[in-house]
């Protein structure tokens, strides 16, 4: 159970580091940022720390990784050693390097996909709610129809038609996700557009774009942010499930979703290799959602008791 011990120690270490960071932030920052740091629970500090680490790793991947992403540097599934701290993968590439590059590729793709889905989905959703009428009907019914088709099968259809380049992968998953975001954004905005301040703004003669940007979006942000946290991690899962069906990111690009799939059979024999990329995904998901929870909590106006 050496592995479990390492994981637990690692997590404790991260929490300690997060506490330290929060303490530093409380003293070093000023003004509103300081107030936020004071308000911040340890979990949120942990989340921010993890996100910062991932970002740093993603940016500095070539400098951090001991080997290039695609180089075959050993034999199949070597054990953990000084040369290869996490061993090698199925065709003899360094596992640690693949994980580090995976941060860059996977987080990049997931971020691009989720951001695209949210921009498209929420703008259309808010717009549909604001304008109403036939535009709302057409968009809503179309989205309903798309949502009624299982996401995985719909992606399978689209990716088979358009091929599996990274761009089409991002576009297809974003399109599927955007329908979900649309529904949420529209539902949230419907409650807002009947408010007096929207009426007032309309009477002032403001245009739709201004209303969406300045009046509705700020008030609809909290549930959207909450959804963003979950959607973000669903992108990893989508890529992973697609590679289960034989579609996914092209080699030699490393991505965690496909890495889980490629090594998954080993878990049958209790080998921990596939846990590494899965763990990377899980840690990031938990971290992002800790931060999201904190922001939601702030937005809800409840004070720590």
């Amino acid at each position: 159970m050496n592995f479990a011990l390492t994981v637990i120690l690692g997590l404790v270490g991260l929490f300690a580091l997060a506490a330290l960071m929060r303490w530093g932030a409380r003293h070093a920052l000023t003004g509103q940022a300081r107030a936020m740091a004071h308000d911040m629970p340890l979990t949120a500090a942990f989340g921010i720390l993890v996100i910062l680490i991932y970002t740093a790793v993603a940016i500095a991947a070539p400098a951090l990784a001991p080997f290039p992403e695609r180089d075959i540097v050993g034999t199949q599934f070597q054990a953990w050693s000084a040369d290869h701290p996490l061993g090698t993968d199925r065709i003899g590439r360094d596992m640690l390097s693949r994980l580090i590059y995976g941060a860059r590729n996977t987080v990049g793709i997931a971020f691009a996909t989720t951001a695209l889905a949210f921009v498209v989905g929420s703008i259309l959703g808010l717009w549909a709610a604001l304008v109403g009428g036939w535009l709302d009907q057409v968009l809503s019914r179309l989205v309903d129809a798309l949502m009624a088709i299982p996401a995985l099968i719909f992606s399978l259809l689209l990716l088979t038609i358009f091929g599996t380049s990274i761009l089409s992968l991002i576009l297809v998953i974003a399109a599927v996700d955007a329908t979900r975001v649309f529904r949420l954004a529209r539902a949230v905005a419907q409650g807002i557009v009947v408010m007096d301040y929207i009426e007032a703004a309309k009477l002032r003669g403001e245009g739709s774009w201004f209303l969406i940007r300045r009046e509705i979006l700020p008030n609809a942000l909290a549930p959207l942010v909450a959804e963003f946290g979950l959607r973000f991690c669903f992108v990893f899962l989508a890529i992973s499930s697609l590679s289960f069906l034989g579609l996914g990111i092209k080699p030699p690009t490393a991505d965690w979703g496909s890495m889980v799939r490629d090594n998954a059979t080993l878990i049958t024999f209790g080998d921990v290799t596939p846990l590494l990329p899965a763990g990377c995904i899980a840690l990031l998901t938990v971290a992002v959602n800790f931060v999201v929870d904190w922001q939601l909590h702030r937005a809800s106006g409840l004070k720590e008791q």
Partner: peptide
Amino acid sequence: AVDAAAMFSENARAAGINLVVDRVPNDG
């Protein structure tokens, strides 16, 4: 096959051949 293609691509690099692996869907 996809792994084999990735290995081929790595091997070929040493000979100055840039072999780009195009992973295509199983389906079809």
